[in-house]
Design a protein around this nucleic acid. Sequence first.
RNA 1: GGGCAUUUGGCGCAGGGGUUAGCGCAUUCGCUUCACAUGCGAAAGGCCAGAGGUUCGAAUCCUCUAAUGCCCACCA
Length: 711
Amino acid sequence: MDKQYQAKDIEEKVYQSWKEGGLFNPDNLSEGKKGSFSIATPPPNVTGALHMGHALNFTIQDTLIRWKRMQGFKTLLLPGTDHAGIATQNVVEKKLKKEGQTRFDLGRDKFIEKVWEWKKEYGGMILKQIESLGVSCDWSRTRFTMDDNYTEAVHQSFLHYYNKGLVYRGKRAVNWCPRCQTSLSDLELEYKEEKGKLWFIKYKLKNKNEYIKVATTRPETMLGDTAVAVNPKDKRYKKLVGETIILPIVNREIPIVADEFVDLEFGTGAVKVTPAHDMGDYQISQRHKLEVMQVIDENGRMNNVPSTYQGLKAKEAREKVVAELDSLGVLEKVVDYTHQVPKCYRCNTTIEVIPSWQWFVKMDKLAKLSIAAVEKKKIVFTAKRWEKGYFAWLENIQDWCISRQIWWGHRLPVWFCQTKKEAHFVSLKAPKKCSICGQCQPKQSEDVFDTWFSSALWPFATLGWPKKTKDLKQFYPTDMIITARDIINLWVVRMIFSSLELLKQVPFKKIVIHATIMAKDGRRMSKSLGTGINPMDLIERYGADATRFGLSWQVTELQDIRFGEENMMAGKKFCNKIWNASRFVMQQLGNEKFDLATKPKPVTKEDKKILSALAKTIKKVNNNMAKFYFGAAIQEIYHFFWHQFCDLYIEEAKNQIREAKSAENTKKILIYVLATSLKILHPCMPFITEEIYQSLPLKKKKSLIIEKWPE
RNA sequence: GGGCAUUUGGCGCAGGGGUUAGCGCAUUCGCUUCACAUGCGAAAGGCCAGAGGUUCGAAUCCUCUAAUGCCCACCA
């Protein structure tokens, strides 16, 4: 054995042996008394490579699943990837752009072919990286959200919602990304602070020489105003409610309405209402039956406006509108104003609100189901503090816009009649004839589902739903979901209500939200900030065990981890320590084979001390693991192994072995403590422990994967 | 605007109503035939963010303040 531990030589070989052993597959595990334990791993997008967040997430999941497996559970850690609609489409579009093409040059079918090619090439990359981290997923059950049978699940769930009246199609104001050319849900927006201006405009009352002043950050939208709103409690405007206004520039007549939504304190207390291009205004318009007048089109250009503005980009129109208002003498003042501007979470383009035909999931019933499940503790957040946000979001929820106008994704199984406009029906297979007019050749909807609509089915669709499979029976509901906080609403909540509605069961019993890794300066780790660190580099330089050690070391209940590479360095040193302590022990033992089943008896004071310290350590590790305090668990073992076992006992053992009467018993204790330490280290540091364990002179020996966890 | 967190030696973090507040890394000094220099032994380094309160006693509980981070929100 080499004096130094060489992670690289060992990891690939050991992982290969695990794969050949097939023990990541629960079908090959014996049916113990403990039953099954399953986790569906959060599927990474096929767009990318493993980042630190993934590395931590998978380390935690694997540590837990290995611990459970050793305890005798029939464990399943199910891997897979997400097609990630917009994200992947954008990546492929970017690639095309380099070749001087757009997706429109190719057309829908050819483009989708390109995306599949891309997926084939890069989609599996991230799974390989997860392997190199040592994660014990059952690769035979790997799933992709656009597998044929997964698509069936997506269709079935839509059909279910449709039949139950839980989805509807409507023309409503939605968030629209002018670059991606698609609608987005509220959760897919990211707000960024921008310096803008607040324009104060005077609107003249009809037949009176009076004005009402409004404040706006987007004067160009005034062309689409259909009302001015004031708060009903506002004394200043009480007598103006019901009056009519002549909208400047277009000289249209619009009413003044009273609505609670208006804040008395802000601006002038009077709001111009542009239902087509503002979510809040849209809701006012619904309450007061106001006209929705679209003046900005899908490309972010002015439309349906006086010819001087027609076709201008919104921003260009803004300057012109302001200039014209000024020349009309109705621009009162302009002040600097900083506000939050919504951006597309995939391409960072400023979002426009525009009215369009979309599909929505009705959320009131589903939200209630989700709230009840957590209130009744059918699902438990292991850190209670996340509940508050969960409830808050569900209590104020809007209907979920699930249709997207992109090409990559599950196409809606909706068919439009060609004779009767807007008439449509749902059919999972291409219909032979139109079930509305019975004559035409119906056309399938161009829309695809929101990518989160399909990921919402992940824990059960991966197990075979809607078919009643053996896997579903055995592994569903899953035991827990382990993920980062940023997708609680985006993903976790949606899995919960999907499962409650479609399967009448919870999708998992526990929600474990783990820390987020930040850069050392406390900022988010991201490529664009240049603060990202590639976990594959860490594995390359320190080895997978050391990387896992370094990550786990810092896992506490805390929400943030400021990443320090020193922890991986410490992990590497620790590997070396384990390696050399094991070398020493084996040098002492010779060829005799030991039986671990019988605990050695302590003879000397030191024997007693190390055995009781080991027992204590096991207890503490169990407690910490059960509470998901992985950092505390690994620190306990680290301390025990390095300082109590190596520094004290091994040193003493050298003396004890020199004396004939204590030599034999000391050797028994040495190998017992070493082997047991390897077992409790295995969930966190699987490679090195397995490698060493297999070379120990033991009578009965299995892979550490399924060795019995010490009690 | 609301919510959730964080603030402990140079850096990254544990801990937690009561004799000397811990760990990793870094630092200083001394050790190399006999598992490991990715090592061993020793040492230095902190008025536990600030203010007030509860208590016999607080770094630990409570209140407020300040910085920082994250999430949520239809203030135009």
